Each structure stands twice: as C-alpha cells, then as structure tokens.
Simulated scan of single mutants.
Amino acid sequence: MISKHNAEHYIWGERCDGWRLVDQENRSIIHEKMPAATSEARHYHQKSIQFFFVLSGTLNIEIDGVEHTLREQEGIEISPFVAHRAFNSSQQDTEFLVISQPNTRNDRVLVN
C-alpha cells in the first residue's frame, strides 16, 4: 500500500511538495501540494500526456496561453508539446494528482 506518508518525497519549485505514488518508466502518479501564491516554470513534455486532478483547494493551469481554474474533484489533460504551467493564486494550499504516461523524468523542456 502507498500513501503520501510512505512515498518518496521531494521539494520542487517555490516550496512545493511532491510524493511519488507510482514511479514506473511507462507511468507515474504524483501527489503534489502547492502552497498559496506559488507556481512552476512554463514547460512542455515531448512524450508524456499528463492529467491533473485536484484533491483540495483550487489550481490554476495555463495551457498554451489559456488559463484554466480547477476546483476540487476537477481535472484536465495536457498533450505532449503543449506548453503549460501550474500555479496557485489562492490564499490556501492546494493538493492534486499528476498522472503522466509515460513518466516525465528527462522529458521536460522549459519555455520562456
């Protein structure tokens, strides 16, 4: 059994947390937590399709120049080569799952 209490933990971006729930070459599932007023760098993936699903709070995702606001129990899919970034513009932490197929390790290209 796996949970964020026993999964591999890492820090990313501006004091954000990630827990690797599934870490296989063909798929990854990560539980992430973004504190209020944090963001990640705009980027795309060359191979991976990603699905973001909000567990608590509100998550903003800019996809190819269009901003989407996801609330609890809402998700969105992002195709390869589509520039995106997640950010939390609220005053509360947000927690969400990121499901990637295949795994995004070494598949991230930063965009200005």
Rank of each mutant, 00 (worst) to 15 (best):
residue 64 D to R: 07
residue 101 Q to W: 06
residue 54 V to Q: 13
residue 77 E to Y: 06
residue 48 S to E: 14
residue 44 Y to W: 01
residue 90 S to W: 10
residue 79 S to K: 14
residue 24 Q to R: 15
residue 7 A to V: 01
residue 102 P to R: 11
residue 25 E to H: 15
residue 88 N to I: 03
residue 45 H to W: 04
residue 5 H to D: 03
residue 13 G to L: 04
residue 46 Q to W: 00
residue 88 N to P: 09
residue 52 F to W: 11
residue 109 V to F: 01
residue 59 L to Y: 06
residue 34 M to W: 11
residue 59 L to N: 11
residue 2 I to R: 13
residue 101 Q to F: 01
residue 97 L to V: 12
residue 18 G to C: 07
residue 10 Y to E: 08
residue 55 L to Q: 14
residue 63 I to M: 10
residue 86 A to Y: 03
residue 48 S to M: 11
residue 13 G to C: 05
residue 48 S to T: 15
residue 75 G to K: 12
residue 95 E to K: 10
residue 74 E to S: 08
residue 8 E to H: 03
residue 69 T to P: 00
residue 93 D to K: 12
residue 12 W to I: 07
residue 62 E to M: 11
residue 96 F to S: 10
residue 112 N to P: 13
residue 34 M to C: 01
residue 92 Q to I: 06
residue 111 V to R: 09
residue 40 E to W: 00
residue 112 N to M: 03
residue 3 S to H: 06
residue 15 R to I: 05
residue 32 E to Y: 03
residue 19 W to C: 01
residue 91 Q to W: 02
residue 56 S to M: 09
residue 4 K to C: 01
residue 2 I to P: 08
residue 18 G to S: 11
residue 49 I to N: 13
residue 17 D to P: 11
residue 60 N to Y: 06
residue 26 N to Q: 14
residue 24 Q to K: 15
residue 75 G to R: 14
residue 23 D to I: 12
residue 3 S to D: 08
residue 94 T to N: 11
residue 42 R to V: 03
residue 65 G to P: 14
residue 43 H to G: 02
residue 33 K to Q: 13
residue 52 F to A: 12
residue 99 I to D: 09
residue 77 E to F: 04
residue 93 D to Y: 08
residue 22 V to K: 14
residue 43 H to E: 06
residue 105 R to Q: 10
residue 37 A to W: 00
residue 52 F to S: 11
residue 51 F to W: 08
residue 98 V to F: 02
residue 55 L to K: 14
residue 30 I to R: 09
residue 50 Q to V: 09
residue 6 N to A: 00
residue 75 G to L: 08
residue 53 F to V: 08
residue 112 N to T: 09
residue 112 N to S: 07
residue 112 N to Q: 10
residue 96 F to M: 08
residue 33 K to A: 00
residue 96 F to V: 13
residue 43 H to Q: 05
residue 4 K to A: 00
residue 83 A to R: 15
residue 99 I to E: 07
residue 51 F to G: 03
residue 63 I to P: 15
residue 10 Y to D: 13
residue 106 N to D: 12
residue 12 W to F: 02
residue 94 T to V: 12
residue 28 S to A: 06
residue 46 Q to D: 06
residue 112 N to A: 03
residue 66 V to L: 07
residue 49 I to Y: 08
residue 18 G to E: 15
residue 20 R to W: 05
residue 108 R to F: 00
residue 88 N to W: 03
residue 93 D to G: 02
residue 109 V to K: 10
residue 44 Y to H: 08
residue 85 R to P: 09
residue 52 F to G: 12
residue 23 D to H: 14
residue 100 S to M: 02
residue 46 Q to E: 10
residue 37 A to E: 07
residue 68 H to Y: 03
residue 44 Y to A: 02
residue 20 R to C: 04
residue 30 I to K: 09
residue 74 E to D: 11
residue 59 L to F: 05
residue 58 T to S: 13
residue 112 N to R: 07
residue 2 I to W: 02
residue 12 W to K: 06
residue 57 G to P: 07
residue 46 Q to H: 05
residue 23 D to C: 09
residue 47 K to E: 04
residue 56 S to K: 14
residue 38 T to M: 00
residue 110 L to S: 05
residue 49 I to S: 13
residue 104 T to D: 04
residue 40 E to R: 07
residue 28 S to C: 06
residue 71 R to P: 04
residue 99 I to F: 01
residue 37 A to N: 08
residue 57 G to W: 08
residue 34 M to E: 04
residue 98 V to I: 09
